[in-house]
Design a binder for these strands. Structure first.
Lengths: 206, 206
DNA sequence: GTCTATACATCGATAGAC
DNA sequence: GTCTATCGATGTATAGAC
C-alpha cells in the first residue's frame, strides 16, 4: 500500500494530480503529463504501465486525503447538535480548501461511482465506522428523544446535499445569482450558518 | 429559431439526443449517431456542419423542454408554503422523468456552464421572470411577515440542492445506502415529504 | 442529397537502441 | 532507466463521383 516512490515517481504523481484534477481522466493527455514532469511518454508507461493505473492511483490518494482530513476534524460526541454543526462546518471548510476534488468525484460518479464508493468504504473501515458515520448516531438520538423523529437516511442526504451543492453548481450559481462568490469567506460563513439553522429547526425537540 | 426540419434532420436529432444523453459530448461518436440514424458521417456533417453545432442544438432543446415542463407545473400563487411544496414536488417529478438530463447538465457545468445559464436565462425571460423565479416571491413573503426572515439566496440554493442532489449522486447513494433506490416511487414520495417538512420548519412563522 | 473513399490529426502504447 | 521513433486505433471532417 505504501511502497516507497522514487523521486521521478513522486514528480509524476504530483504533476498527474494537477493535470487530472484540471482536465479529468479523458481530457488529460499522457503527453502533457510527461512534458510537465520533464520526461517522455515512454518513461511514463515504464513507471505506471498505462493511463488507467496512473489515474486510479491519483484518484484514490486524493479521495483518501480528503476523507481523512474531514473525519479527523469531526469530534467524537453524542450531542447531535454539536455533531451536526461541526460536521457541516468541517465539510464546507474542506470543500473550500479543495474545490477541485468535487469535479474529480463528479466525473467518477458519472462513470458509475465504483472507484469512489470503494475508496470511501475503505477509509470508513480504517477509521472504525461500519457504514456512513452519521446514520447510527442519528438513529440513537431519535431513540433517546434527543431530536424529533426524522428519516435518518434522508437527513444524511440532506446534510451532504446542502453543503456540497453550491460547490457542484458553482459556475451556474455565480452566473445566475451574480451577488454570490461561492469561495468567498462571506458566502462560506453565511452558508454554514444557514445550513445549520435549517437542519436544526427541522429536527430540534419540541 | 423554429426552422422546419426535414425528416432526415428530425431523425438525426432524435438519435443524437439519445447518444449524447448516454455518453456525453466527448464520449459520443459521430459514427454511432450516423449508424443509428441509418445514414453516414458525410451526410451528418452536411446537415449539421460539425459535432459542436449538433451538440448545442440537442442540449438547448433538452434544457428548454425541461424548464418549460417544470415552470408550467408550478402554479402562480402568493402563498409561499403552497409555492414551495408545488415547486419541490414538480421539480422532483421532472427529475425522475428525465434523470439523464442531470448528467447532461453536469457535463456542461464542468465546462463552465455558459451554455446552460444562457439557455436557462432565455427560458426565464420568455416566461416573464426577470431572474431566478423564486427569489422575488420569497423576499416579498419576508417583507409581508408571511415567513420568518431567511436569506432568500441561500434558501433558493437549498431548495434546489435538496431536490437535485439525490439524482446527482445516485450511483454512490445507492452503493453507500443500499436500502435506497433513488428512482423508486417509495423513495421519491419520501423525499418530497422530507424536503418540504425540512424547508417549512426552517421558515414557518413563529 | 447521398454515397465512398480518404485526408488529417490525436492519442495511448510499445519496440528497440543506448 | 531513459530515450527516439513509430505503430495502430480512432475520431472529425472533407473531396469528389453520382
Amino acid at each position: 500500500m505504501t511502497e516507497k516512490l522514487s523521486d521521478a515517481e513522486q514528480k509524476i504523481i504530483s504533476v498527474a494530480t494537477r493535470v487530472f484534477l484540471q482536465k479529468g481522466k479523458d481530457g488529460a493527455r499522457m503527453q502533457e503529463i510527461a512534458d510537465q514532469a520533464g520526461i517522455n511518454k515512454a518513461l511514463l508507461h515504464y513507471y505506471f504501465r498505462n493511463k488507467d493505473r496512473l489515474y486510479r492511483q491519483v484518484f484514490r490518494t486524493q479521495v483518501r486525503t480528503f476523507f481523512q482530513e474531514l473525519l479527523g476534524a469531526v469530534p467524537e460526541t453524542d450531542d447531535v447538535k454539536v455533531l451536526l454543526e461541526r460536521f457541516v462546518e468541517s465539510y464546507i471548510d474542506a470543500l473550500a480548501r479543495h474545490p477541485e476534488i468535487v469535479r474529480f468525484v463528479l466525473w467518477e460518479i458519472q462513470k458509475g461511482g465504483e472507484l469512489f464508493s470503494e475508496t470511501a468504504r475503505e477509509v470508513f473501515r480504517e477509521q472504525g465506522f461500519s457504514r456512513f458515520p452519521f446514520v447510527e448516531k442519528i438513529q440513537a438520538a431519535i431513540r433517546a428523544g434527543q431530536i424529533r423523529a426524522a428519516d435518518p437516511l434522508h437527513l444524511v442526504i440532506s446534510v451532504i446535499g446542502l453543503c456540497v451543492y453550491p460547490f457542484i453548481a458553482q459556475p451556474i450559481v455565480e452566473k445566475m445569482l451574480p451577488e454570490i462568490k461561492v469561495n468567498s469567506s462571506k458566502f462560506l460563513a453565511q452558508r454554514k450558518r444557514e445550513v445549520c439553522a435549517l437542519l436544526w429547526s427541522g429536527i430540534a425537540p419540541e
